[in-house]
């Protein structure tokens, strides 16, 4: 209980350090002047009284330090330790370099792993209502994620009574002819309502229209 109060009092002093120093200085000056007056009252010359008071009082800076060390957190010793550590590292650069590289790799790896976990597991998907997005797949004894056939998708869509909408996507790639030759570009084959199901709109142009995904309709693409 006592140590907790001491800690918070110390914390208070830390934030009012300047005021603390000013008050202590004023207090000690007052003390010195009072002593001086008394010496004068005892018959000393003002000059001699001043020196006597200063002598009696001693080194003001040292006294202030002693009061500071009572209320302080010994921050100065922390700085000293840091300086010492830096000097030691400077003395053996090979060791220092090894330590720094290992720390850098360790921290880097931790950050990378956390970034992945954060994006994959902690952060919600970047869509308006991620808690209402569900991925539904077929599975079988051989495959955990069985590819869904197009007629099955149509049946699911027709018989759906649970979701606001059902849409499909399939990972694919296309060959893109450019001036420099043919390039392979990754793509996604999606049903017409895919983007409205996700709740996103194209930044430019228009979304797919219903009916544009049926067999025989003109091919349409959306660049991302």
């Amino acid at each position: 209980m006592n140590s907790i109060r001491r800690f918070f009092n110390k914390l208070g002093f830390l934030f009012r350090r300047n005021r603390f120093t000013a008050e202590l200085d004023e207090e000690m000056t007052f003390h010195r002047q009072q002593a001086e007056r008394e010496f004068v009252a005892d018959g000393m010359t003002p000059e001699a009284a001043r020196y006597a008071a200063m002598r009696q009082f001693g080194n003001a800076a040292q006294l202030r330090d002693r009061s500071h060390s009572v209320v302080g957190f010994k921050l100065e010793t922390v700085v000293q330790d840091l300086r010492f550590a830096l000097r030691q590292l400077h003395r053996s650069p090979g060791f220092a370099a090894t330590a720094i590289v290992i720390l850098a790799l360790g921290i880097g790896a931790s950050v990378a792993i956390f970034a992945f976990v954060d994006a994959a597991l902690i952060k919600p998907l970047p869509y308006p209502q991620p808690n209402r997005l569900i991925e539904v797949t077929e599975n079988s004894a051989q495959f955990e994620r069985n590819p869904l056939s197009y007629p099955d998708y149509l049946d699911w869509k027709r018989m759906n009574s649970v979701f606001s909408s059902v849409d499909v996507f399939a990972n694919t790639g296309y060959a893109l002819k450019t001036a420099g030759g043919t390039e392979s570009v990754p793509g996604e084959r999606v049903s017409a309502g895919f983007f409205s199901t996700l709740g996103v709109r194209p930044a430019l142009g228009r979304d797919f229209r219903a009916g544009e995904d049926v067999v025989g309709a003109a091919h349409v693409a959306l660049l991302s």
């Binding site: 006592n2 109060r5 001491r6 009092n9 110390k10 002093f13 202590l24 207090e27 000690m28 003390h31 009696q56 009082f57 001693g58 040292q62 006294l63 002693r66 009061s67 060390s69 009572v70 209320v71």
Partner: peptide, 17 residues
């Protein structure tokens, strides 16, 4: 009482409340 002991002591007492 020396000033050098008095003021640190007072700070200590203040800290203790």
């Amino acid at each position: 009482v020396e000033e050098g002991s008095l003021y640190p002591a007072l700070q200590r007492l203040l800290l203790q409340g």
